[in-house]
Computed example of a mutant assay.
Amino acid sequence: MQLRIFTEPQQGATYDDLLAVARRTEETGFDAFFRSDHYLAMGGNGLPGPTDAWVTLAALARETSRIRLGTLMTAATFRFPGPLAISVAQVDQMSGGRVELGIGAGWFEAEHRAYGIPFPDVRERFDRYEEQLAIVTGLWGTPVGETFDFAGRYYQLADSPALPKPVQPGGVPVIIGGHGKRRTPRLAARYAAEFNVPFASVEDNATRFAGVREACEETGREPASLVYSSALVLCVGRDEAELTRRAAAIGRDVEELRAHGAAGTPAEVVDVLGRYAEAGASRVYLQVLDLSDLDHLDLVASEVAPQLD
């Protein structure tokens, strides 16, 4: 099982904080560093304020050399699809082909109000999201020297040179996720390299994975061609005292974390991750909420990851 580190910088982090976590992620052998794409804290004051996801990843592309880099999830409401395709392709070039694009329809209404971003109803957001997926992947997939056109309800492109291209053949891998039962599996089957289930039970993961596999079969795609992944909050301690200290640092209850996250002693977390693997996950995003606690990453790298091979 691959382990990836997932951060929530809108809760309060500078670029230097994120750089320190990304470097430790690389040094300790994790597969990737991912971050959320949000502009407003969800509780707390969020000081010193938000950092932009793709500006951050562009910088990290030049300051790391091995780890994959990406978002869970960029909101389709935040950016026009053409400029988004350009930005992500450029960061992919800057990283030497290590970027992945997690993209969703957008859901956090308060951050849209706070920064003047239009927030249409859920149906329109999903309609726009579907058009964005078609445009971004279409731009990347257009052969050099040819042009790309798109005539949608919300977005229209004419004679686009569809440049620049990502370094990765076929374009940057797209990650789609969530708990939707109808449109989400269909979109994943059509556009995604990976399907992610965030912060849900083993049983829910198995159900959502099955829905995507069924959607793949309906469209003639091989279900095994997708990566299936889970996201879980991380809280590990060598003993109960260390676990309690880490839970308190992120304002969470130990038993609640044990019930719903990758939490407990290293042995307990290995067991939890094993259950998610049995449900079909080959990759897990470990949500690290205390970005100052780099020893937390060291502990997982030394006492959890080796037992998952």
Rank of each mutant, 00 (worst) to 15 (best):
L299G: 06
R190Y: 06
L18I: 10
T77N: 06
T14E: 13
Q156P: 08
L234W: 07
S36P: 15
Q307E: 12
V284K: 00
T207H: 10
V284L: 00
R213Y: 01
V270N: 09
P83D: 11
S282P: 05
V21N: 08
F126K: 09
F195A: 05
R62F: 03
E26S: 02
A53H: 05
Q168P: 05
E100Y: 04
R113F: 10
R208W: 03
D295K: 15
A281W: 11
Y39T: 04
A206T: 12
E278L: 15
E109C: 13
S282R: 02
E130N: 15
S225I: 03
E242Q: 06
G96N: 02
R186I: 08
S302V: 14
L60K: 02
G178V: 03
A110V: 04
L84V: 01
L101I: 05
A262C: 00
A210Q: 09
S160K: 05
G29C: 09
G251T: 02
E194N: 01
L133Q: 08
K181R: 12
E146D: 07
F209S: 01
S229I: 03
G145M: 11
N205D: 02
R24F: 07
E203A: 03
L226A: 01
A114D: 07
T56R: 10
E255Q: 08
N196T: 15
P166Y: 03
H112D: 02
V304W: 09
F33H: 14
V236T: 08
A224E: 09
T147M: 13
V269D: 11
D149P: 06
S160A: 11
V269R: 11
I176K: 08
P83M: 04
G152M: 14
D159N: 15
A301H: 13
V270S: 04
E194D: 01
V122D: 12
R190I: 11
L187A: 02
V269Y: 09
R68H: 15
M73K: 09
